[in-house]
Design a protein around this nucleic acid. Structure first.
Lengths: 134, 134
DNA sequence: TGCTACCTGAGAACGGTTCTCATGGTGCGA
DNA sequence: TCGCACCATGAGAACCGTTCTCAGGTAGCA
């Protein structure tokens, strides 16, 4: 069975306190910053477990795996701010249907899809405008 | 200016001969296999250039960057076989529109999207069925 | 409380990618 | 055609994120 250790719980909590996607390294640094002496390997293991159990979403950006706490059991995608990492869960029903249809048209079976939308969140958009107008 | 070297051309040709997505390492091995003594760093540089110029598409899978020759200038997505890497270019107009709309709804600006559909191509589906029925 | 199997953590190992820098070759002007 | 300047190349080291190793610790159960 899966044991409940304070380290695992600390990772879960740190992740749920985070608004957007964070890297394992950043989460590890954050935990160390709050006085939790958790090992890097443990953070990686905990995140992998959470992702496998559906309690966290993960995506790869620039060769780094990013994680985020998410609603377990619900299939959804993300709208992610390129600047600050803030993420919004979005449903993508039309895309689900489209993906299945496209796969079927080409004779592909067992379709899965990767759909993420990146952009600048309202706050970062405002900051970018200010910078641009300087 | 960008110089034309036989190494760069060799990478371009090797990539265009490939049907699906290949890793830089695999392409390098392939080039070495055909007697082209091209350095690994050069392959990486050439692929990065091709991707930047729009002559190649790239995606990251399991921490590895994969590349594929593509139609320059056209925005498209891919239907990729998980098993053999074969890829089909697909247009995704409905998804483009959806992505823009979702971004706008949440106040996100400068939307970009990552959309890839993975599955088993007809051939690999057939092979999988045979294996399953054994 | 004692036992045991699983978890932890420090650091090494690993794999893909990028960097370094001396050497070689391309492109261009004469 | 020749020479020059500068960019590209390539071998290997460096780098970076991730995974593995293994000894020691600890949760969970009886």
């Amino acid at each position: 069975m899966k044991r409940n250790t304070w380290q695992r719980e600390a990772v879960r909590e740190a992740l749920s306190r985070t608004e957007g996607f964070v890297s394992a390294q950043a989460l590890h640094a954050s935990l160390r910053g709050t006085g939790s002496e958790v090992g890097l390997a443990t953070v990686y293991r905990a995140l992998a477990d959470l992702a496998q159990e559906g309690e966290a979403d993960s995506l790869v950006q620039e060769g780094e795996s990013l994680y985020r706490a998410c609603t377990p059991g619900s299939h959804h995608h993300h709208l992610i701010c390129r600047s600050c990492g803030t993420a919004v869960e979005i449903s993508a029903d039309p895309v689900e249907a489209w993906a299945r249809q496209v796969a079927a048209e080409h004779g592909f079976t067992r379709p899965e899809h990767v759909v993420d939308v990146f952009g600048l969140c309202p706050e970062c958009s405002a900051s970018a405008d200010e910078t641009a107008s300087d």
